[in-house]
């Protein structure tokens, strides 16, 4: 993406345009993981500061700008929310209704999204839900285990098998 590469060269107008283009989506991702607007804003701020400082690490030959931006904000949001749960004993992430069908419906608006949607569709419903809750809602192995009332070892092996079949399906 041109804007990301221009930001890497210190172009403030491009950086602002990048914020206008991506701010709502990255904040949405962070909000879904942190469940709190102030934490989501912190994570989004950190991600954009990193974009400004480290965008030169983005190599279009190696990957998409989309994955670069999405990963930055997800890792920041996961950091923020894990730190929060460590520092606040008894902190429980807000219970959320299962939004899986909704999340999957939204996937189908890009070619990559269509492929991933198809491959997720091949998993059985409970394992698919596990992958979506982990990736989109940011739940850890132990959170998934208590949320779904399944032993942690089972959660881990279900996730591993789901990821393997996703990799296989996406490669075909």
């Amino acid at each position: 993406m041109l804007l990301l590469q221009r930001s890497a060269r210190g172009d403030r107008a491009a950086f602002r345009a990048l914020y206008d283009q991506w701010g709502r989506r990255l904040y949405g991702i962070a909000l879904r993981i942190t469940r709190q607007p102030s934490l989501a804003a912190d994570a989004t701020q950190d991600a954009f500061v990193q974009i400004w400082q480290q965008a030169q690490r983005f190599d279009p030959a190696r990957g998409s700008a989309e994955a670069f931006l999405v990963s930055l904000v997800r890792y920041r949001a996961l950091d923020v929310v894990r730190r929060q749960s460590r520092e606040t004993p008894g902190y429980e992430p807000v219970e959320q209704e299962d939004e899986t069908p909704d999340a999957l419906t939204r996937l189908v608006s890009s070619a990559e999204g269509v492929a991933l949607h198809r491959c997720l569709g091949l998993l059985d419903a409970e394992r698919r839900r596990l992958v979506v809750m982990a990736f989109v809602d940011g739940l850890s192995h132990s959170e998934l285990s208590s949320h779904l009332n399944v032993p942690i070892g089972t959660v881990k092996s279900w996730i591993r098998r789901s990821l393997l079949s996703l990799r296989e399906c996406l490669a075909s």
Binding site: G23, Y27, V70, R106, L107, F135
Partner: peptide, 18 residues
């Protein structure tokens, strides 16, 4: 893996930041 899964993260609804 970041490439494979990125579209799924974008399924989170966009939201207006403060």
């Amino acid at each position: 893996w970041e490439e494979r899964l990125a579209p799924l993260a974008l399924s989170a609804p966009p939201a207006v930041p403060p």
